[in-house]
Nucleic acid binder design. Structure first.
Lengths: 212, 212, 212, 212
DNA sequence: CTCTAAACGAGACGGTACGTCCAGTCTTCGG
DNA sequence: CCGAAGACTGGACGTACCGTCTCGTTTAGAG
């Protein structure tokens, strides 16, 4: 009479459980100390089940990451101004990165060739759209911008996000847009952008080694 | 009778042997599969000897890296032109990176807090010097440039070096300098820089995933 | 339009296939490495089909063994002489054992309580019949023989078959009969049994350990 | 002042601990379910330590067995009578076997070629000595006995010990000696051996299968 | 020059995780 | 309902390294 409930998890249900377990482990112990055994134990299943789906912890971690973080440029921002659009794009990138610690990213990039910078291409499309609209509005003379220039804001932000330990602030985003990107486009900001305080400020962090 | 040669290595001699062994291992198997046991075996010594000097493989790898790659900005370039100087700086960065596979870098950044972007600060100093001289020569109006702008060329190159799989070419460097940095400084290139072919070219690589 | 042949095996047909697969596996990899999965794969069926019939690999192996080796004392030998009958019984035991490697037997005895020495009782009956006929023929005074004595030849042969690595030869069988069993019955062999060569011969094999 | 006790066990001390742990596991779970992990856990050491010493669980089990059970025929019995000596030998065998369950033995014989019947040869020597003394005392005409006959009592007992589930009783031993061995030697027992009750008794156990 | 303390080389130790195999059970689907 | 197929829980396998500890052997340098 009563609906026979499956005792044993299978397929998608099981997979979701595992990916959530992996995500939890990633945040508790970090990628470096992520173990298949740990994930299996937390998901209350066997290691074989994991290995049936992902060849190694890198693939598992990538899958867990994607499971939690949806696609980035689902719908391009449209704030009505060039500056607003670009800032919104950068904000979304930063917000997205919030979930993914640098350490995890580096660990993945060290072990997996999966994690690519593919998003760069996607971002290029988004930026092209933004510039298109800006040209239509007459904010800039032409949408014909070198791809190198077009990717400057996202590249610079990504550089900060992944390769430095600087906290990502609104000021940082404003700097990238107002000191670098807009000037490159020959855009002269109107009166609404007079908060250019941080310019010419020295970086606080000191070098302790030689880095790379 | 014969000169008594020390059978057992110690101190610096031993340390050098180890660091070379580590460097060799790094290139043979990569950072991910670098093991203390492997290095010890290759250097024909015991693991204790390694642990006496470096707390873990990350420290050892960093040390091995530094042992091979000297400091970056030993002497700032001085080619006589702003453009030449900046290009030279980027070339040196690229050349230096040649020795250090991306995988190694990511592995290190995942495990060690040692590998920092400290070099960024050093590069800032170098760039400041270059701009100073350019201002003196009258190439640019003033050396008073926002630190954000000043670090744009090195940040962009580092982004390419570490976060993409693009090969580092002369064209890439030229793009960064001619399409981004010099325009930002309000610099109008002379007749010697008419090789601006790559502009507006589309990026060839396609996205295969969502990356990050 | 040809007669639709049942693609799916069932009942006895399926069971036979499985038992033959099991027997084949037993001879290819031995009992120790016999696996339910291996048998299922070889029989092109699922594990559940096996578990529906036999609780574990021991039971399956026993079944496979019995499937190949029929009952031992189907019809008691009747050669016309006491000596001939006993030798024939021992020969049949030896021949039967030929199919079943010692390793398989030990494996089964370790895991299954099924494989019993029940045959001992059967053999006792067979031996009783043989002695009965010998008494009737007048070869021995009486068929009233202690059960212990009666089982001596089969027990000794079984000891050799299962617990030693000695090859089972005609001489071995002759020894058991002529040096042990017949003397125990007070039987004086006639002239046809003068091939008593092996007596007093030393055993060739040397001890290498302490065994048990 | 205080004796510095080594925290970490090594060499023989560690080995003894392990063998005792293995012996304990053998008795708790039996050979079939003996696991290297179980032994390592009980001995509070790593699996590698076990594998460094023994290639597999069979070797470990054999070693554990030998560690507990000393050599069998350290000093031959000398009771003053042939019967007494033989009975004493069989009693010792039975006592020794008490420690080693049949299941363990079969498991070992299935997996290891180490466990041999070498002891048979040793027993032959012991029996030869016993017969020698019996001949000297005049109990038997000559010590020249066929090796087959000489090993009959030990072979029969071993058959019972290993291949049947019969409990090993004094009566069983008496049967072997009084009904089989002594008669074979043409020995006529004196008045002290009138307890020949069990003769002609039927075996109680019934066959449940076809055995082997 | 002898003695001593430290460092070296070698490798065992207690442990964690790997990636694989198999047991025995459960589920789905098709005939 | 049962066969075929295969996924699931779970446990052990045998291996690789980790970082520590111990042993016996150089080897510098202090006395």
């Amino acid at each position: 009479m009563s609906q026979q409930v499956s005792q044993r998890r299978r397929g998608t249900e099981l997979e979701d459980t595992i990916l959530e377990a992996a995500w939890a482990e990633l945040h508790e112990v970090g990628y470096t100390r992520l173990t298949m055994e740990g994930v299996a134990a937390r998901a209350r299943t066997g290691k074989q089940v994991l290995y049936r789906r992902w060849r190694n912890r890198a693939e598992l971690a990538v899958a867990a990451m994607r499971h939690k973080t949806g696609s980035i440029a689902d719908q391009p921002p449209d704030t009505g101004t060039l500056r607003g659009d670009v800032i919104e794009v950068l904000r979304r990138m930063a917000r997205r990165q919030h979930d993914i610690p640098r350490e995890m990213l580096h660990g993945l990039m060290a072990e997996s060739s999966e994690v690519q910078m593919d998003v760069a291409v996607i971002m290029a499309d988004v930026m092209a759209g933004i510039l298109e609209r800006a040209a239509t509005r007459g904010e800039i003379a032409s949408a014909e911008v070198s791809p190198r220039v077009m990717s400057v804001p996202t590249d610079l932000l990504r550089h900060e996000l992944v390769l430095t330990r600087h906290p990502i602030t609104e000021e940082l985003i404003a700097e990238i847009v107002d000191e670098v990107f807009l000037p490159l486009l020959g855009f002269v900001p109107g009166d609404d952008v007079q908060d250019q305080g941080p310019a010419l400020r020295a970086r606080p962090e000191r070098a302790r080694g030689r880095g790379f």
